[in-house]
Every structure is written in structure tokens, then in C-alpha cells.
Amino acid sequence: MSESNWTPITRTENIPAHEGRSVQIGGLELAIFNLGDRFVTIENQCPHKGGPLCDGIVSGAEVVCPLHGWRFDLNTGLAVRASLAACVTTFPTRVADGIVLVDAGRGRRIEPEAAVA
């Protein structure tokens, strides 16, 4: 695994609680969410039809894509419904001095098991 490389993104108050915002880092488009007690980051593009996940409704630690309702676990990046063998990449995220930091170089992707039904 490559070494840490944290990019300062924005002040925490720029992302309201239980909402997401998109940000470009290098060639990546990421969606950062404020879960109230912590921040999480995933790739912004829904693997289904490319919907902007940052605009989705947050449900606990899950986000629902605004286009067709696909739902992803923000901790693992895995699609929540068992029928969907899909996932998004998650990125390490932390807060320091009121600034949200993301390590875009250490994206993690858990490939789901084979599709069912």
C-alpha cells in the first residue's frame, strides 16, 4: 500500500450534516459526506448509470443514489441490496483543525461476491 498523502479539502462547516458534496482531486471526482459524527468519502459516480452520489439522501451510514435509488454502504462502498453485485471505492477521510482531509491515493475497493438473483 502506498504511503499516506492527505489532501486538505474544505472546512467542515462547508458540508452540512447528513449531506454530501462533490470535489475534484486530480482526475478523481469524489463525494464527501458529513455523517454528523464523522466524514466519509466515496467515488461520486454510481456504478449503475453514473448518478451523482453526493446528491443522494443519507440514511444512517448509507447513501441512496438520486437517479434510481441504488444504495451504498458508506463504510464499505458495497451496494446494500443483496441483488446488486456492485460497489464504489471508499477513501480514508479525517478531520484536523476543522478541515476535512482525504487520502485520494489510498482508495479501497471491496469487490462484491458474485451476483445473486
Partner: peptide
């Protein structure tokens, strides 16, 4: 839109 405060130059 949010623009990252510090862009990571080394990523690419």
C-alpha cells in the same frame, strides 16, 4: 462547488 484547498500534485 467545493474546491479542494490543497490539490495533491503527486497523485498522478
Amino acid at each position: 462547488p467545493i474546491h479542494a484547498i490543497g490539490q495533491m500534485e503527486t497523485l498522478e
